[in-house]
Design a binder for these strands. Sequence first.
DNA 1: AGCGTTCTGTACTGACCACTACAGAACCGC
DNA 2: GCGGTTCTGTAGTGGTCAGTACAGAACGCT
Lengths: 186, 186
Amino acid sequence: MGRPRTFDRDAALDKALRLFWERGYEQTSISDLTQELGIGAPSLYAAFGDKRTLFEEAVARYEASPRSVTAAGLAGTSRRDVLRAMFERAAQEYASNEHPRGCLVNSAPELAANRAHNRMLTANRLGQVAEDAESRDAAETVAAFAHVMLVGLSSYARDGADEQQLRRVAELALHAVEAGAGAKAG
Amino acid sequence: MGRPRTFDRDAALDKALRLFWERGYEQTSISDLTQELGIGAPSLYAAFGDKRTLFEEAVARYEASPRSVTAAGLAGTSRRDVLRAMFERAAQEYASNEHPRGCLVNSAPELAANRAHNRMLTANRLGQVAEDAESRDAAETVAAFAHVMLVGLSSYARDGADEQQLRRVAELALHAVEAGAGAKAG
DNA sequence: AGCGTTCTGTACTGACCACTACAGAACCGC
DNA sequence: GCGGTTCTGTAGTGGTCAGTACAGAACGCT
């Protein structure tokens, strides 16, 4: 009961996500948000809490997306598969014009914990699909390499690289795990 | 003639550089700078112009440093040499405790032009040391791959990775160019 | 219709932002 | 010592920041 809100909370969250994605947390002001969302500040605070809480909810929404690059990798059934899936998804998504370029998580300084989490998920999956002890030992390093690539690809996309440029770099990166990951990586 | 300034301009520029390096351009306020430099705002403006100009001078100083990762690569005399030198320098520098972690140029959204310039320098060098037509054709992609790695390594270092972790990832990346750069990369 | 509840728009808070006007201090040449 | 020049410290400028107090509007329930 009570007066119903005049905007779609879900659509508003999506707009906020895109704004944070494009400009980053600090560079997105409450004023930017209320203007883009077409609502007043009190409505925003009532619906989402403070700026930080809104950001966290936006990030959670971002990570739950079916477009997730890390999730694409987790579906892989071999080391090469895992990395190929991640890089392919990244090349598609990071340069897409459907949404801001690059990756929100991989371009926000304040999301180190999310990056560590994703890296761990990838390492675990690489451990699962490892075919020998060496591959199992190298899982963390290979996962670190993959996510280092993702951060770099995200930045490259933000700097203007198109999907083909990302794809060329990603393909080159794929050779690394074929050639070197089974061999000792340390 | 006139009243002499009471601070060392060079030392002040260095402190400003470190502050920008650590926090980024937008997150470093004039108030932060005057406090860290131990001078008043009018002195800062008189010596360096406005905030943007100070930032640009700080970046120029950063890029002129003998620790430059790109410059280390330019001294290489083969493709493998160029990349090995870059990655080794990056692993050392990005995790060093002598200065803020990571790379100023590779972590500042506003320095895309500097990144493009460094990528071009590396591509040119790779073109020079190429031993066949295929390597020459792949120079831009290999340079893009190398600088994508650098951005990722910089972020990884900022997230807390130590020199050894960076080194392991870098070594893995080096396999990519050995295995795949001569082969068609697109 | 009237009440309780919840939302909305206006208008504001103190804090911080980049930047500067102004007055006095510290130097030079004379 | 005196004038000209350049720097320094104080104290501000208008603007934007995140967040909110308050009054009225729009609903469901009775």
